[in-house]
């Protein structure tokens, strides 16, 4: 059971999360919802990397006295990489929100069809 969960189910969950994100970006009309869907997709990628670093029975990668051998510690590198990816995601969201503020101020709408209609007038 544990094996099934850690070897298969978790990856299907990640794929589902990624697809939910992609679906939302394509089909949602509201630009803020599109942005939220983009964040969901990024979180799926982040979880994927964290799963790569995970080990059954492993603990945090700080040397504990008396506990030797790499099998007792989880791999810290994916976590370090994902810290960077989270910062990137934060920056992207910030830039996107700034754009949305700007768009809302000019066109008074964040629904995509309404905004495009006012833009082309």
């Amino acid at each position: 059971m544990k094996e099934l969960l850690s070897q298969h189910v978790i990856y299907w969950l990640i794929i589902t999360l990624f697809m939910i994100g992609l679906f939302g970006m394509v089909y949602k009309n509201n630009l803020v919802k599109k942005l939220m869907a983009m964040n969901i997709m990024q979180v799926a990628v982040i979880i994927f990397f964290l799963v790569l670093g995970q080990k059954a029975g492993g603990t945090i990668p700080i040397e504990i006295h008396g506990l030797e051998g790499i099998e007792n510690y989880i791999n810290p590198l994916p976590h370090a990489l994902m810290l960077t990816a989270i910062v990137v995601s934060l920056a992207t969201t910030g830039v996107a929100l700034a754009f949305l503020l700007f768009i809302e101020r000019r066109y008074g709408a964040l629904e995509e069809d309404e905004m495009l209609r006012r833009m082309n007038q």
């Binding site: 990624f18 992609l22 970006m25 630009l31 599109k34 942005l35 983009m38 997709m41 990024q42 990628v45 994927f48 990397f49 790569l52 990816a85 990137v88 992207t92 830039v95 996107a96 754009f99 949305l100 700007f102 768009i103 000019r106 066109y107 905004m115 833009m119």
Partner: peptide
Amino acid sequence: GYKATVAAFRYLLIGTVGASFYLLGIG
């Protein structure tokens, strides 16, 4: 300008999908 902002927002969404795919690939 304003139209450029709309274009940039779209580019941002699509570009982030591209970057996420790249990140998955190196994963």
